[in-house]
């Protein structure tokens, strides 16, 4: 049967579409700007009015991953021709790659390592927070836990302080136990941040799964753990996806602790990007390319889980 809409509804729908478009433009403009700047030659990055049409170049990315110095005089043609494409891009910008004096290899800027650190720390801490959170939430949801309300409040209370308040004691403790500037240290920290959140969100989702499903499985001859795996987990997938995205974003974006608790070895990408601003003359295209790459994992992760998120973002408010 065709849906009949009144005139008022049609006008409302159109107004809603316009409103969504305006919101989209407002939200996407900065992202577009970063994305565009990441592919601009340096001289177009700071023009006013901004350049919208230009020939994209990968030179900001080449610069992003290498340590460079200013060329005093133009490089000779033979060297230029022998250089790989990314090095040529750097020469084009009037700079040369800093080479290791003994091996002659190009020196890395460290962004690649930091990016890897971000990935390692975020993925592992998200996995830990979501899996522990789901199991804990299941326990709270399905069993009579003595003092359940107090425990849940206690878990939530870890989120009541701005985390940075505990930064100094954490720093001292981490240094004392040797967790300073380690991946494990950051993983523990981010897992702890996200765990309370994961428990609360997952409890909401698991509460909505009728316990009759598992009980039927228990009577059918499955153990509690098998019933959890076969019945609860598939039903909770939406909630798990939503929780995972939130946890991943929190861990991925975390700046303050990453800045304080790490230095050379385990530092993540967020503290690196601003460290490039104002060291000499800022090259905004390099900063933009770093930020652009930094955006990608969250965008990809969210895109992959989008079907679950559409249902999950409503926090289980929509019942089947």
């Amino acid at each position: 049967m065709a849906e009949v809409k009144t005139k008022g509804e049609v006008i409302f729908n159109r107004a809603a579409i316009v409103a969504v478009l305006i919101a989209l433009v407002i939200m996407l403009t900065p992202i577009f700007w970063i994305g565009a700047t990441a592919f601009k030659p340096r001289n177009l990055a700071t023009t006013a009015p901004p350049t919208v049409f230009f020939e994209p170049t990968l030179s900001p990315f080449a610069k992003l991953f290498t340590k460079r110095s200013q060329l005093r005089e133009p490089v000779d043609e033979a060297t230029y021709a022998a250089a790989p494409w990314w090095e040529q891009l750097i020469y084009d910008g009037g700079e040369s790659v800093v080479r290791n004096k003994k091996t002659g290899e190009a020196t890395s800027s460290g962004y690649g390592n930091r990016y890897m650190n971000s990935l390692i720390v975020s993925i592992i801490s998200t996995f830990l927070a979501v899996s522990m959170g789901t199991i804990t939430a299941y326990g709270f949801s399905r069993f009579r836990v003595p003092g359940e309300q107090d425990w849940l409040f206690f878990i939530l209370s870890t989120r009541m302080l701005p985390p940075i308040v505990v930064a100094i004691p954490m720093f001292l403790m981490y240094r004392a136990v040797g967790l300073y500037d380690t991946h494990v240290g950051l993983i523990i920290l981010y897992t702890a941040f996200n765990l309370s959140f994961a428990v609360w969100i997952m409890k909401g989702f698991i509460d909505e799964i009728p316990r009759e499903y598992e009980e039927a499985a228990l009577v059918d001859g499955y153990t509690r753990l098998q019933a959890f795996r076969k019945i609860v987990l598939p039903e909770a997938l939406t909630g798990i996806a939503a929780t995972a995205v939130f946890c991943f974003i929190t861990a991925w974006n975390e700046y303050a602790f990453a800045l304080m608790m790490t230095s050379r070895n385990a530092q993540t990408a967020p503290p690196y990007i601003p460290s490039q601003v104002g060291s000499g003359l800022s090259d905004w295209t390099v900063i933009a390319s770093g930020a652009f790459l930094f955006l990608l994992p969250v965008a990809i992760f969210t895109f992959l889980l989008r079907n679950h998120l559409l249902r999950g973002m409503s926090f289980g408010a929509i019942r089947k």
Binding site: A216, D220, Y222, K320
Partner: peptide
Amino acid sequence: WTAAERDVALVLQQYSLYPRLTVRGNLEFP
């Protein structure tokens, strides 16, 4: 004994079928 060991069958008012499975899947489940 646990529920699994008792060899009883349970029919409930609702929610006793697994929503992700077909009818055959549900019948095979036990």
